[in-house]
């Protein structure tokens, strides 16, 4: 266990280091001096040193320090990702288990294909359409309007959009992991030696499947972050993901680089946690 965690920590550190390097390269590419290679390298080193001093630079668009902007926009986005993850787990886990273990598997597979084939922005717009025409909710699609008492209704749609995208990823990871353990020889072995099916599933298969889910956390978080970008754009909520899109569009490379680093860091940290949990649940179950 200890060795495993240390190895994962090294991977985490290496990943974060790589992300810092890439962020510095992106920030440097925005400098006017970075037209040629020596200029780029100087700018790159400069940014690295600045990052080392925890100086994240200044947003080229708003003129405020990047750190300040992060503090303003990031919490909202993180909350959106976290709540989306909650929805994804609540919706995706039972769904995935039902599809993976139940006899509905083959019938439901094409349906799942259709749902997962829908790009997030399309499903977001579809949700908005349903909310307006069926539920008569206020939706901030065209202009940021928010009456305080309806604010939760406005917040619900992006969360739902992110959550659905996450749920698709969750059920995929879950089904893959369940398919892996459904062929495990110990199922037959234990059953023949006299254990009940439910007993085998609860004590020996479920931890394995859960470990598979934890090990696939990276994929789920990638889907969530990706969906967050789209959801914030579609529903006009001014968060960090929206800020990223705008920064890139306006060539604010300082901002974009740091945001990219933050998103990569989220993935690495979640991956680390997921791998560790997976190892604790079913050591040696996965490479």
């Amino acid at each position: 266990m200890q060795r495993f965690v240390i190895r994962q920590l090294i991977r985490l550190a290496a990943g974060l280091l790589g992300a810092v390097l890439i962020a510095a390269a992106i920030a440097a590419s925005g400098e006017p001096a970075a037209r040629d290679l020596p200029g780029f390298l100087t700018a790159f080193l400069n940014h690295l040193i600045q990052f080392g001093r925890l100086n994240l630079g200044i947003s080229l668009v708003s003129g405020t320090p990047v750190a300040q902007e992060l503090a303003r926009y990031l919490p909202q986005t993180l909350a959106l990702v976290a709540m989306g993850a909650g929805v994804a787990l609540v919706a995706g886990v039972p769904f995935g288990l039902l599809l993976a273990l139940g006899p509905t598997r083959r019938i439901a597979a094409p349906l799942i294909q259709i749902i997962t084939a829908t790009p997030v922005f399309v499903s977001g717009l579809a949700l908005a359409f349903v909310a307006v025409h069926v539920l008569h909710w206020p939706v901030s699609v065209n202009a940021p309007v928010a009456t305080p008492y309806q604010s939760w209704q406005i917040a619900a749609l992006p969360i739902l959009t992110v959550g659905l995208a996450g749920a698709a990823a969750v059920q995929l990871v879950l089904r893959r992991s369940a398919a892996l353990s459904s062929e495990a020889p110990f199922r037959t072995g234990l059953k023949r030696m006299g254990l009940g099916l439910i007993e085998i599933e609860t004590f020996y298969v479920l931890p394995h499947v859960a470990a598979g889910l934890a090990a696939g956390a990276r994929e789920i978080v990638l889907a969530l972050v990706s969906a967050t970008v789209v959801a914030e754009w579609v529903f006009h909520s001014a968060g960090a993901a929206d800020l990223f899109v705008k920064s890139v569009a306006l060539a604010d490379w300082n901002m974009a680089a740091i945001l990219l680093f933050v998103f990569a860091a989220i993935t690495f940290v979640v991956d680390f946690l997921g791998q560790t949990i997976a190892h604790a649940l079913a050591p040696g179950g996965r490479p």
């Binding site: 290496a14 990943g15 790589g18 992300a19 390097l21 890439i22 992106i26 590419s29 990276r218 990638l222 889907a223 972050v225 990706s226 970008v229 789209v230 990223f244 899109v245 890139v248 569009a249 060539a251 974009a256 990219l260 998103f263 990569a264 993935t267 690495f268 991956d271």
Partner: peptide, 22 residues
């Protein structure tokens, strides 16, 4: 592999947006 791994830690969509922006 490490370099590729760092790229793979960013959702493809963000990566594509960034590259198009650049």
């Amino acid at each position: 592999r490490g370099f590729w791994g760092v790229l793979a830690a960013v959702p493809p969509l963000l990566l594509a947006i960034l590259l198009i922006g650049l």
